[in-house]
Design a protein around this nucleic acid. Structure first.
Length: 401
RNA sequence: GGUGAGAUACUCAAGUGGCCAACGAGGGCAGACUGUAAAUCUGCUGGUUUUUACCUUCGAAGGUUCGAAUCCUUCUCUCACCA
């Protein structure tokens, strides 16, 4: 089994906030004593998932709970998805049809089961009970709460004060999400810090509906993106997707700043807190090179979403390109009619967005052919095969016929 | 519904008749350096093989003018105050 103390420590790790930790300890004890499982809920958007490391912070925590006897209620909010979470700036969205929802759920499973144990995971859809709720049920639900309480919520309050419109349906969102916890009888719910209000709603409603327990709430922080400032998100482009190829993943991890690395270690690594602390001290004292520490983190992450061998290969590839300034093993290939102007090739090979940009980069000495810097802006390429490079990272093999 | 303010490049934001492809900041890209795509410093950042030139762009469409991001008209949208 496991040690209660160390389990609690690992559960606390990286958490932004835990509400009712007592309850978590209680269910853990119960599990240790009688092997009785408990339920940990986490909700996800029904839109097509493209998970990145920001999401996996939460999912890894779920996986940790599985180790300690939890059954994960992986909730896909197909019903609440129609409303749009007022957290953030979403407006009312079109409902997704059934086949799309199922398709997205499948895609979730593919990505999520790289971390979660499928045997200890129940994938559930909240439309299955919210559809049944009906007008009567919804009215009942709304009587459990009042507007003043609702307005306590930070973003509602701000919007109310600044007189930004709040749709009535947005008031419904937290209530429905909370009702999910009633329907599922969850013992613990996990979510991001931005979900605090909604998560607490679950607790509140479980009491109101008298289901005999109140879920504990555990909030994970939002992971900073590659820039180290904004939260990781697809729209900002500062993310590492779990389906990205090993080389890109490895490179992206290595591109984070040394400071940010420790944050990633805490939230993403499966190393224990002690191991990380030792490593950090060794880096500070100069015993371990910061780059080595970053590489080992990158390896771990690549190995998790691909495998150990691919991680080793990604590291070798990275060294090859950046340390030995060699050319990468794989690169896009194009063939074209010659003789051809160098700037034209760069745009054809999609290494540059425009010939103007290509010219600028040539002027700056960013363009290389067969490892040789291009000096002549007007250079024409005759027949033959060339390795064309822009900057440190963009390569293409060009065949001129 | 009434009144007022505004809409400029990836974002924020200057410019109120010619010196404007449009100040500045952020972001992005590149170079140098290095330990990596870290940090730091520097350059570039609408398009086009006419590159000390040409073409397109300052919410949209018209108009005034030798000349408009800048002035006028209409329209669309956003915001603020009042109801």
């Amino acid at each position: 089994m496991f040690e209660l103390d160390s389990a609690v420590k690992e559960i606390r790790r990286g958490c932004a906030e835990i509400i009712d930790e007592e309850r978590i300890i209680t269910v853990l004890k119960e599990y240790l004593k009688s092997g009785k499982n408990y339920y940990v809920k986490a909700g996800f958007d029904p839109t097509a998932p493209d998970l990145h490391l920001g999401h996996t912070v939460l999912i890894q925590k779920l996986a940790l709970f599985q180790k300690y006897g939890a059954i994960i209620q992986f909730l896909i909010g197909d019903f609440t998805g129609m409303i749009g979470d007022p957290t953030g700036k979403n407006i009312t969205r079109k409902p997704l049809d059934r086949p799309t929802v199922l398709e997205n759920a499948k895609s979730y499973k593919e990505q999520v089961f790289k971390i979660l144990d499928p045997d200890k995971t129940e994938v559930v859809f909240n439309a299955s009970w919210l559809d049944e709720l009906g007008a009567k049920g919804i009215v009942e639900l709304t009587t459990t709460f009042n507007v003043a309480r609702m307005l306590e919520r930070d973003d509602f309050e701000k919007r109310f004060k600044s007189e930004t419109p709040i749709s009535i349906s947005e008031f419904l969102y937290p209530l429905l999400q909370g009702y999910d916890s009633v329907a599922l009888k969850s013992d613990i719910e996990l979510g991001g810090t931005d979900q605090k209000f909604n998560l607490l709603m679950g607790r509140q409603l479980q009491r109101t509906y008298n289901i005999g327990k109140q879920q504990a709430v555990l909030m994970m922080p939002l992971l900073e993106g590659l820039d180290g400032v904004n939260k990781m998100s697809k729209s900002l482009g500062n993310y590492i997707g779990v389906t990205e190829d090993p080389n890109a993943m490895f490179g992206k991890v290595l591109s984070i700043s040394d400071d940010l690395m420790w944050r990633y270690y805490e939230l993403l690594s499966s190393k224990t807190l002690e191991e990380i602390k030792t490593l950090h001290e060794d880096v500070n004292s100069g015993k371990v090179h910061p780059k080595a520490a970053k590489e080992s983190l990158a390896m771990e992450i690549v190995a998790r979403y691909h495998d150990r061998d691919k991680a080793t290969m990604a590291k070798a590839e990275f060294d090859k390109v950046h340390k030995q300034k060699d050319i990468p093993t794989d690169m896009p290939e194009i063939s074209t009619q010659g003789p051809i102007w160098i700037a034209k090739i760069l745009t054809d090979a999609k290494l540059e967005p425009s010939t103007s940009q290509a010219r600028r980069d040539i002027k700056q000495g960013a363009v290389k052919i067969n490892q040789e810097k291009v000096q002549d802006e007007q250079l024409q390429l005759e027949n033959g095969e060339y390795i064309v490079q822009v900057g440190k990272r963009k390569f293409a093999r060009v065949k001129v016929i």
